[in-house]
């Protein structure tokens, strides 16, 4: 299954390189949100350690939804999804492959958005190592739920409206943990940041296992 999942992820990577519309849309969305937040609340409020991480993670969450939806839409547009599903273990491989691919693309958007936010808001970073760990685990914690909800709404006409409705409430613990881990890394609280990062890892594992166990049955 791992080999097939990696094949799906590699195919996804190739498709992203040829037609990077999902990546471009997500990166533009994150950049626009960083700029908008500074304009709306003012740079002094936006750079507060309790505000900047929250808006960053909300932006990344929506970026993950944009990337995942675009990825599945591409499959549906040319009926490629039917060929993958017809393979033995195709559903498992599709879920795991999409998960890995979203992880990679989201990491690129997270680095870009993070650098932009740090530069534009002139953020002081007390613990760079902890910040990187929190960012990495935050990126790992989002895709399992996002892919799950996009897969659930596959072939539904109202999926653009339904995915955020389904995903946002489930992702509240991830958002809270990622925001706190990042904020405490900015403020210089190593133990607090590590505790929230640990929670992020636990959540990521729970949803990845849950997703791999039950979601493939719902992919049509």
């Amino acid at each position: 299954m791992i080999r097939r999942a990696l094949l799906v992820a590699a195919r996804e990577g190739r498709a992203d390189r040829r037609q990077p519309d999902g990546l471009v849309a997500a990166a533009t969305f994150v950049a626009a949100l960083v700029l908008l937040e500074s304009v709306v609340v003012g740079p002094q409020v936006a750079r507060a350690s309790s505000v900047a991480p929250a808006l960053y993670w909300i932006a990344l969450l929506f970026a993950a939804i944009v990337i995942a939806m675009r990825s599945f839409e591409r499959e549906l547009e040319d009926d490629a999804i039917d060929a993958v599903l017809a393979l033995p273990g195709g559903r498992d491989a599709l879920y795991a492959g999409k998960l890995i691919a979203l992880l990679g693309t989201l990491a690129v958007v997270a680095v870009g958005g993070g650098v932009l936010e740090i530069a534009l808001l002139d953020l002081d970073i007390a613990l760079p190592g902890h910040l990187l760990l929190a960012a990495a685990l935050g990126v790992v914690a989002l895709p399992a739920v996002v892919i799950l909800d996009v897969a659930l709404t596959l072939r539904l006409r109202a999926r653009a409206a339904l995915v955020p409705v389904l995903a946002l409430p489930v992702l509240v613990p991830q958002l809270v943990a990622a925001t706190n881990a990042t904020a405490l890394a900015l403020e210089g609280d190593p133990s607090g940041s590590l505790a929230w990062s640990g929670l992020l890892l636990a959540i990521a594992l729970v949803y990845a296992v849950l997703g791999l166990t039950i979601v493939p049955t719902a992919i049509e």
Binding site: L148, T153, R157, L166, V170, I214
Partner: peptide, 23 residues
């Protein structure tokens, strides 16, 4: 909402079951 937007009986039940387990 997920249930109400799915028309096919079996697909709706499967989708909803996954959502019910996650929730």
């Amino acid at each position: 909402l997920l249930r109400s937007l799915s028309l096919d009986l079996e697909r709706r039940a499967t989708r909803s079951a996954v959502a019910g387990i996650v929730a």
